[in-house]
Nucleic acid binder design. Structure first.
Length: 272
DNA sequence: ACTGGCTCCTGAGGGC
DNA sequence: TGCCCTCAGGAGCCAG
């Protein structure tokens, strides 16, 4: 399963206790070619530096140092876990950040759609972050906000909802799930949906994501687990990946349709 | 301003 | 059983 926002949040909560207050002793990249190359100077820049904090914006993790920060993205197959230094790297484990605790933060990413970048200044103005929409669990994200943003958008509401400039962290799975929960057809034009229905949708996004994060928190027992699992979890999905199955609400068959190059699942009986 | 298409990469899964 | 082929998927980027 690809990391969506709940998985990134769970990763953040899992690694944070191992990182904050520690200093870097060593950085190693075995494979530098991610979506962008890993900066070559990290191995000389990072050792000796205390880690001030690790935070999240959208699906990016931000590891702050006194003179800059590392920006991490898990792409669609990335994961982080804490290992002991004598753990031999397995395939696709592309980089290690060794800590003065004696532990190692290890990154695995078979498809290499992820990122590890260095930047200075305020993360909020980083080119990859500056134009992102609000966090879905923040008060800035509401039905009123969605309705206002949608007025000039004629594309399918599902594509609209997945646009990071509208709201961050709503990936392909949770877009289908949220639209089902709100009873809105994924193909409906974004500017043809009333405010009251956007209120339902915003609430659905918040509750679906919050439930997944809560599930992650309870599922994730030990971020240093040696099985390589970073704590990804199985959320009870109502429609995603269930084409042909009966709708849990009305019993009609769940449909699959490609919208904006993405697989979309919905119930034609419940969603309009 | 907005939209659709392309791109990176590899594992999974379907078909035979 | 096993091989081969297709395709999914986050999100930046570009062209129209």
């Amino acid at each position: 399963m690809m990391p969506e926002l709940p998985e990134v949040e769970t990763t953040l909560r899992g690694v944070r206790p191992h990182l904050e207050g520690r200093a870097v002793t060593h950085f190693t990249a075995r494979q530098s070619r991610l979506r962008q190359p890993i900066p070559e100077d990290l191995a000389t820049r990072l050792p000796g530096q205390p880690i001030l904090s690790i935070t999240r914006r959208a699906k990016y993790l931000i590891v702050a140092f006194s003179d800059g920060y590392c920006l991490i993205h898990l792409g669609m197959s990335g994961s982080l876990r804490i290992v002991s230094p004598d753990t031999p790297p397995k395939p696709h484990e592309h980089w290690d950040l060794a800590l003065d605790s004696g532990q190692v933060l290890r990154y695995r990413d078979p498809r290499r759609f992820g990122l590890l970048l260095w930047a200075t200044g305020d993360p909020a103005v980083h080119p990859l972050l500056a134009h992102l929409g609000p966090e879905p669990l923040s008060d800035r994200f509401s039905g009123t906000y969605l309705h206002r943003m949608a007025q000039t958008r004629k594309s399918a509401v599902k594509a609209f909802l997945m646009d990071g400039k509208v709201v961050v962290g709503v990936g392909n799975i949770y877009a289908s799930e949220s639209l089902f929960a709100a009873g809105i057809s994924p193909t409906r034009a974004a500017n043809r949906i009333a405010l009251a229905r956007y209120e339902s949708l915003a609430q659905a996004v918040k509750s679906v994501l919050a439930a997944a994060i809560a599930q992650g928190g309870t599922t994730l027992r030990d971020f240093t687990a040696s099985d390589g699992s970073p704590g990804y979890f199985r959320i009870a999905l109502q429609v995603y990946g269930r084409a042909g199955d009966p709708c849990p609400r009305c019993g009609d068959a769940i449909q699959r349709k490609v919208i904006a190059q993405r697989a979309t699942y919905y119930c034609p009986g419940c969603q309009h």
